[in-house]
Structure formats: C-alpha cells, structure tokens
Simulated scan of single mutants.
Amino acid sequence: MELTRVLWLASFPILVTIVLIRMAWQRATFSRTTKRSPPPPPVATGAPLLGILPALLIKGPLQVIRDAHAEMGSVFTMRLLQRKVTFLVGPDVSSHFFQGLDTEISQDEVSQFTIPTFGPGVAFDVDFATRREQFRFFGDAMKPAKLRSYARLMVQEVEVGNN
C-alpha cells in the first residue's frame, strides 16, 4: 500500500504539469489563429475581364471613384483589366499609405507611370539607394529660393521661343 501511495504522489505532479502545459499550448494556438489580419477591402464590381473600364469611359475616372467611395466607404479596390488598385480616400485612412514602410507599401509599382515623364534611370526606374540620392537633389532644387531663381529663366525661355 505504501508503494502505491509513493507512486501516486510521484506521478501526480507530473500529471498536473502535463495538463497545464497542454492547456497553455491550446491557449497559445487559439490566440494565434484568432488574431487574423483584417479582411481585404471590398472590390468594385465591373465587367468580366474589363473591370471598371466601361464605367471609366462613360462616367470618367473622378465620378467612378466618387461613386465607389459613396457605395463602399473610404477603402475599396477597383479592377482595371488585370490590375487591382486599392483607393484610400480621406486623411483617416490615407495616413497608413504615407507613413507605411517600403516593405508594406510598394511605391515602385504605383509610380511606374512617372518613367516616361522623367526618363529612364530617374526616380522610380532605379534602385532605392539611387532614388533616395536623386530625391535629395530634387529636394535641394525645389527649395523656395531656388524656385524663385528659375522663374526668370522660364520667362526668358518663353520669350525666346515666341520670337
């Protein structure tokens, strides 16, 4: 009888430890599975394959965005052909875009349209380190004192072009 009592007293702490570890494991697993990322924003309906292209041609881009904002709220996605574009309308939702990290928000994809404007090898057509250096140059060139000095040059250019 004494042996049974010793075995029981020895195994009881082990059993309690196993139960407590199992409960902690289940709680940790449950909290990981319940902490999900927010659902994606609603997607504007459009024609198959064409997306919102027909609406853009009929109403114009500004009215299409206004209609989607009124229908779906401040954050929504529109599909144009194969490209999905998510809109953040208003200061309360757009701050994430302006304060987001490059790992979260890719400016490269959004800003590809600037390449024909600035030319190849400038701004969003280069790697991040080169772009940051170029933006430093842009920043220096766009200071108010520099901009004032450009006005005279622009007037001269226009007057020479008209003669």
Rank of each mutant, 00 (worst) to 15 (best):
residue 80 L to W: 04
residue 100 G to K: 01
residue 74 S to I: 01
residue 82 Q to D: 06
residue 126 V to C: 12
residue 16 V to E: 02
residue 151 A to I: 13
residue 128 F to H: 12
residue 1 M to K: 02
residue 145 A to G: 01
residue 116 P to M: 03
residue 154 M to V: 14
residue 57 L to G: 11
residue 101 L to W: 05
residue 69 H to A: 07
residue 14 I to E: 04
residue 38 P to N: 06
residue 159 E to T: 02
residue 33 T to F: 11
residue 150 Y to H: 03
residue 158 V to Y: 14
residue 161 G to M: 12
residue 94 S to I: 02
residue 56 L to K: 04
residue 18 I to N: 11
residue 13 P to F: 07
residue 143 K to N: 13
residue 103 T to R: 11
residue 46 G to H: 03
residue 118 F to C: 04
residue 123 A to M: 09
residue 151 A to Y: 14
residue 106 S to H: 10
residue 121 G to L: 07
residue 136 R to D: 00
residue 143 K to D: 04
residue 46 G to K: 03
residue 133 E to Q: 01
residue 71 E to L: 05
residue 121 G to C: 11
residue 150 Y to S: 04
residue 20 L to Y: 09
residue 106 S to P: 09
residue 154 M to R: 15
residue 137 F to M: 07
residue 160 V to G: 04
residue 9 L to R: 13
residue 63 Q to I: 04
residue 10 A to V: 13
residue 105 I to T: 02
residue 22 R to L: 13
residue 146 K to S: 14
residue 134 Q to A: 07
residue 117 T to R: 07
residue 78 M to Y: 00
residue 132 R to G: 03
residue 114 T to L: 13
residue 153 L to T: 04
residue 110 V to Q: 09
residue 52 I to H: 00
residue 157 E to D: 08
residue 22 R to N: 10
residue 110 V to G: 01
residue 151 A to F: 08
residue 123 A to R: 09
residue 138 F to G: 05
residue 22 R to P: 02
residue 2 E to K: 00
residue 94 S to Q: 07
residue 142 M to A: 12
residue 163 N to L: 14
residue 37 S to Q: 15
residue 82 Q to Y: 02
residue 105 I to K: 00
residue 35 K to C: 03
residue 95 S to E: 01
residue 92 D to I: 05
residue 20 L to C: 07
residue 111 S to V: 06
residue 28 A to F: 11
residue 142 M to K: 09
residue 41 P to H: 02
residue 23 M to Q: 12
residue 29 T to P: 00
residue 55 A to D: 05
residue 125 D to R: 03
residue 55 A to M: 11
residue 75 V to P: 01
residue 10 A to N: 14
residue 136 R to K: 04
residue 3 L to M: 06
residue 110 V to A: 09
residue 100 G to H: 05
residue 17 T to Y: 13
residue 160 V to M: 12
residue 76 F to R: 00
residue 39 P to D: 05
residue 100 G to Q: 00
residue 69 H to P: 03
residue 51 G to M: 06
residue 142 M to S: 14
residue 105 I to A: 00
residue 163 N to S: 15
residue 121 G to R: 09
residue 119 G to R: 10
residue 81 L to R: 10
residue 135 F to I: 08
residue 4 T to R: 13
residue 1 M to V: 03
residue 4 T to Q: 10
residue 129 A to G: 13
residue 92 D to E: 15
residue 17 T to V: 11
residue 123 A to K: 08
residue 99 Q to F: 12
residue 37 S to C: 12
residue 103 T to H: 04
residue 24 A to S: 08
residue 111 S to T: 15
residue 41 P to K: 00
residue 148 R to D: 12
residue 74 S to D: 14
residue 49 L to A: 02
